[in-house]
Amino acid sequence: MVQGKIKTENIVAALIFFFLFICPLFIDSYSVLNISYFLSMAFLSLSLTLIWGYCGIFSFGQAVFFGIGGYFYAVLTLNLTGTSAITPLGLLLGVILGGLAAWILGYFMFYGGVNDVFVGLITLCLTLVLSTFMGQTAGSAWNIGQVSLGGFNGINGIPALELGPISLSGNNFYYFVLIILFVIYCLLKLFTHSKVGAAIVAIRENRERTKMFGYNVPKIQSLVFAAGGALASLSGILYATWGNYITPSAFALSSATIPVVLVAAGGRKNFTASIIFTVLYYWFAQGLSASGSQYALVILGLILILVTLFVPDGIIVFLFHLSDRLFFHRESKMKEVQEEHLHEKNIG
């Protein structure tokens, strides 16, 4: 838990961010655009790492907040095109709305004593219902202002973000996303070392016990869930401005579960790992779909099964620990724990 130690994770994170900051200098603009998409999706993984990895709230509902953010931004900005400063305002309000929606849902669940796998089930049902709902909004009955929700076709022509005179497209958009990602990543790292950061880990490890150390557990859970909702919503808005469209597939079952898969496979208790795995996945998936391969999902499913069976802490985290042991000769926590388990097995 000590901050700023030299270990693989920190070095890798520093190198990756350094590389991301300079890479537009020597790659073509199409790749830059692709990477901005990968980075936009990283916020969704960060949101799940925060609430699941750190706080133990297992949610399939991040897609809901992703979609809410995207649709809200689309409807607001398309209704008020031409108004100056509407796009940054839309971004800000969308993020707040995502957080608020998550807080309301969280309030009902956590204060009602709903936890563990039931949170997963409720959020899964919610995602399915919203995806059905959005799919049937094709008619003119579903216009909000001048914008039609558009059923399965979704909403097109969503305006890009504009910061004053600068339109955020191409490299500008890339740097905008990257800077936000860097800032949020650093904030999350700092947060995990804060008082509340320690409390959410305690809640993950033992909810009932943590109440008896004087923590208002449902309140903390609702707030963390809200923060996760805000991050997911941010991801949705960046996605909508990146491709200028959003469709109900944002709420589809696959969208709901992909973050779970990525975070579980990369390392659910580690922000760096989930960013890395997310970017790698989207890169890999895009490569495969570009080459027309149908095997992407099969491979991904197999990876998921194998990782859960053999490296339950996540593959990137496993590599971090391995390298820590090789290069920094440090007894990592994980190893100590594993040895203890071995020890217990030998006695038992």
Partner: peptide
């Protein structure tokens, strides 16, 4: 509620050790 009672000055050691196993004693 439980946490309010703790703040009033009630504290407990449970029957099954209620410690956080994956963290250090200091944490």
């Amino acid at each position: 509620r439980t946490w309010d009672r703790v703040k009033l000055g009630l504290s407990i050691k449970m029957q099954i050790p209620g410690v956080y196993g994956d963290l250090t004693a200091y944490e």
